[in-house]
Computed example of a mutant assay.
Amino acid sequence: MMHYLFHRYWLVNVNRQGDTLLATSQYMDTACEMAGIMRVGVTDFRVTGARVETYRAPEGAGPAGTTELDALVGVTAYPGAGREVRRAVAHDPTGRWADLLLEGIKGLFQAEYAVFRERGFATEADFDTWFWRDFAGTCVYYSNPGQGLREFSDHIRDQVRGGCCFNRHRYCSITDSGEEYLVQAGLSDSFHEMGIALRVKTGSMEILHAGGHTLRALDTICQRGPERLAMLPGIPLTTAARKQMMDAAGGPAGCTHLADLVLEGVKTLELALSGGRKPEV
């Protein structure tokens, strides 16, 4: 008989307010509830304000409340900012703040298309060309230039975004049968939708079975990404095996979003087994 151990949910929203983008990452799990909020400039993505609001704190992690993160002011909220974010939240008693804020930065990155002119691109085609150049080889889509794939601008051409630049919902849950854990994770956002399921042996944490499916993505070639999940069985679902899992699910023939969901399974299982407290890793 399966019984639930732990749930995690994220809702990321990026809205434009004049010359500012407001990225809000709302988060809830079995042990706590919080939000990470960042304001950045539209033209340079530099942080002008950031805070974490804790509404329900994990047991032993101190009282709920708001923490201003002045150390993030001036940081460019873009991929590669992980070290600066982690330094700014080194005093976090919950072990969740960095990932929460980085989720907002991912949202800002995805929202960039909505402000491509302010970011210095004259046309949609210029933005597409830059993406192909700078992200070549990062996934199965961006590893196949010149193959007549649908451009990102064509994928979202019919969308009317207004001031709402990007939305993403993500979840991960752990259930326990006694002999196995079932890890289920998925996301649905303004551009993508996909999910994975992993069966994991208790004790050894070895992945016994892995599967998934992509429902929405840039092009049909993205459907090849879930095929890479078949390389996961035999690898332990642990932080120590992070690189093995990334190599299997991600890389030039895989999907970065699916790989992120696998890694989220690692963190969620660690939290489930620690009773929701900050894992000692």
Score class of each variant (00 low, 15 high):
residue 221 I to V: 15
residue 241 A to N: 00
residue 51 R to C: 09
residue 126 D to V: 04
residue 75 V to Y: 03
residue 35 A to S: 09
residue 187 L to A: 12
residue 22 L to N: 04
residue 276 G to Q: 05
residue 34 M to I: 01
residue 222 C to L: 15
residue 187 L to S: 13
residue 195 G to T: 08
residue 100 L to M: 14
residue 27 Y to Q: 04
residue 246 M to T: 11
residue 185 A to Q: 01
residue 123 T to G: 12
residue 63 P to N: 11
residue 103 E to F: 02
residue 132 W to D: 12
residue 230 A to S: 15
residue 37 I to Q: 03
residue 169 H to I: 14
residue 81 A to D: 09
residue 136 A to Q: 05
residue 176 D to I: 14
residue 228 R to Y: 10
residue 121 F to T: 05
residue 21 L to H: 02
residue 187 L to C: 14
residue 144 N to R: 13
residue 274 S to G: 15
residue 95 G to T: 08
residue 155 H to N: 03
residue 32 C to M: 06
residue 22 L to R: 07
residue 137 G to D: 06
residue 90 A to P: 09
residue 256 T to F: 02
residue 171 Y to R: 09
residue 81 A to V: 04
residue 183 V to D: 00
residue 222 C to S: 06
residue 98 A to D: 03
residue 200 V to Q: 00
residue 153 S to L: 05
residue 26 Q to A: 13
residue 247 D to F: 03
residue 22 L to M: 08
residue 141 Y to C: 10
residue 160 V to N: 14
residue 247 D to Q: 10
residue 141 Y to D: 12
residue 169 H to L: 11
residue 216 R to N: 12
residue 12 V to M: 07
residue 41 G to P: 07
residue 67 T to E: 08
residue 97 W to E: 05
residue 217 A to D: 11
residue 138 T to W: 03
residue 11 L to H: 13
residue 201 K to G: 15
residue 251 G to E: 07
residue 229 L to Y: 00
residue 79 P to A: 10
residue 106 K to I: 14
residue 266 V to L: 00
residue 145 P to H: 03
residue 121 F to R: 02
residue 263 L to T: 06
residue 22 L to S: 03
residue 225 G to F: 03
residue 156 I to E: 07
residue 34 M to L: 08
residue 35 A to C: 07
residue 141 Y to P: 06
residue 168 R to F: 05
residue 167 N to Q: 10
residue 274 S to W: 11
residue 82 G to S: 14
residue 52 V to Y: 04
residue 49 G to M: 14
residue 150 R to C: 10
residue 265 G to N: 01
residue 58 P to W: 04
residue 142 Y to H: 15
residue 200 V to W: 00
residue 256 T to P: 05
residue 274 S to H: 12
residue 58 P to N: 07
residue 244 Q to D: 14
residue 233 P to D: 02
residue 145 P to G: 04
residue 250 G to W: 00
residue 30 T to E: 08
residue 279 P to S: 05
residue 104 G to V: 02
residue 196 I to R: 01
residue 83 R to K: 15
residue 145 P to K: 05
residue 77 A to H: 12
residue 185 A to H: 02
residue 32 C to K: 00
residue 84 E to V: 02
residue 81 A to H: 07
residue 168 R to E: 03
residue 140 V to H: 06
residue 94 T to S: 10
residue 14 V to G: 10
residue 77 A to W: 07
residue 277 R to Q: 10
residue 180 E to A: 09
residue 194 M to A: 13
residue 56 R to V: 15
residue 184 Q to S: 01
residue 175 T to E: 04
residue 126 D to I: 08
residue 203 G to E: 04
residue 73 V to W: 07
residue 218 L to W: 12
residue 49 G to T: 11
residue 249 A to M: 01
residue 156 I to P: 06
residue 203 G to V: 06
residue 159 Q to A: 04
